[in-house]
Design a binder for these strands. Structure first.
Lengths: 147, 147
DNA sequence: TCTTGAGTCTGTAGTTACTACAGGGTTTAT
DNA sequence: ATAAACCCTGTAGTAACTACAGACTCAAGA
């Protein structure tokens, strides 16, 4: 069935994607934006990835899961690549990111209250009028809408 | 200073943007994607917006603030435009959206715990090694990382 | 050996919801 | 009269991918 080629430890792009649960195109994209280095190629031009590439890709994917932007990861990786990073630098970026996440949570929670409020006004009958629409049109509603 | 032209009740694009606290280009964008109808024009070709347009734009902007996607708003507006919407239809969309928001909040909260955990491991000394980096490289950490 | 199907290559376009020009015409204020 | 501040159009850029199209390569079965 699956017969993805592999030369010793080196795997092709599709195989690497499968191993890391990522999309094959994403890997090429990371190479294009120079987040991943250009790998060596087989005679016929196929990309071949070794263990360093695998580890680096996992790092990036995990970072993305944790909501770091590509640019944040680029910084993080340049620190690691340089080998001269200090825990302080990394910590700072993490804390800043954490603050962004917390802000986003707060925003969404306010949003949630407003939506819940809106939807509670109207339990969805067949009436051709709806408090939700009224709210969107800016009409005042009984329940306070947090701003 | 500012003397944005207005013919009777009708205002130009820049004026409408100012009134609604939106970006002038956004208005043109909404017209392009047919979320806003093409307005009438002055002799020289300037767009002129009346009160209906103003209300509609406010509706859209408020909806966007509440996290509705353009496509959701398009549906909502088509219900309104048709005039034959029922509260039930609108309610359904709102509840669905609310669920998306709640899911997003949960995801972010898990993320927050992980990040807080990571950053707590390392208080940011000058040591050239960092638990945050270790986590990203997939090394096991003491505190449990929620998945 | 030939064929077939899966895998890979490249470049490019599409996604979401805007925002930012560039190069021109128009209107208003001084 | 002239400059400043508008507006017009079309196009490109943003973030982070994803999805093609058309061509090449590789491995396995008949």
């Amino acid at each position: 069935m699956k017969k993805l080629p592999s030369t010793s430890d080196f795997v092709t792009r599709g195989r690497l994607a499968a191993e890391t649960d990522s999309n094959i195109e994403t890997i090429r994209y990371y190479e294009k934006i120079a987040l991943m280095p250009a790998p060596r190629r087989s005679e016929s031009g196929y990309r071949l990835y070794g263990d360093a590439a695998r580890r680096r890709l996992r790092f990036i994917l995990r970072g993305r899961e944790l909501g770091f932007s590509i640019e944040e990861l680029r910084s993080l990786l340049s620190l690691v690549d340089g080998g001269d990073y200090t825990c302080g630098e990394v910590h700072e970026m993490t804390v800043e990111h954490l603050e962004n996440v917390r802000t986003k949570i707060n925003d969404l929670q306010r949003l949630e209250r407003t939506l819940a409020n809106m939807s509670a006004q109207c339990e969805g009958g067949e009436v051709p009028e709806c408090p939700v629409i009224d709210v969107l049109f800016g009409k005042p509603v009984l329940g306070p809408l947090e701003k």
